[in-house]
């Protein structure tokens, strides 16, 4: 946990998050992420054996509704806000093939 994050790791994480970090930004982001993670290393001092993780403050489980049809968003209105649409569907570039 104490190992300092490297520039290569930042580049890898950016790729996972579908972001591109320019060369001149890489040093800045690496230093800033390292500073936050260093603060987080304060947690290492805590003995957390037997402490359960808490994902949400008000634990509701299996929130269900009646299986009845209710109005949904107007497809025309939704597609009007899409960057590209065609024949009632979202239009995207090819999934395969080279990037330009």
């Amino acid at each position: 946990m104490t190992k300092r994050i490297t520039a290569d790791e930042v580049t890898h994480v950016a790729t996972l998050a579908r972001l591109r970090v320019a060369d001149d930004e890489l040093v800045m982001f690496t230093e800033q992420l390292a500073a936050v993670l260093e603060t987080a290393s304060a947690l290492e001092a805590l003995d957390l054996d037997g402490v359960e993780p808490m994902a949400q403050p008000y634990a509701l489980t299996n929130v269900l509704r009646e299986d009845v049809v209710t109005p949904s968003l107007d497809p025309t209105e939704v597609l009007a806000m899409a960057p590209a649409a065609e024949d009632g569907r979202f239009r995207v570039p090819p999934a395969l093939g080279d990037a330009q």
């Binding site: 994050i5 790791e9 930042v10 994480v13 950016a14 996972l16 998050a17 579908r18 972001l19 591109r20 970090v21 930004e25 982001f29 800033q32 992420l33 936050v36 993670l37 995207v92 570039p93 090819p94 999934a95 395969l96 093939g97 080279d98 990037a99 330009q100």
Partner: peptide, 30 residues
């Protein structure tokens, strides 16, 4: 725009988000 879906995703997110948002996305992904 990008030549394929992934290139479009990356170009869009890189141009659309500011530095603080990128920092937190990367931190969280890490």
């Amino acid at each position: 725009d990008g030549g394929n879906v992934e290139a479009m995703n990356i170009a869009t997110r890189t141009a659309g988000f500011g530095d603080e948002v990128k920092r937190r996305i990367m931190l969280g992904t890490y």
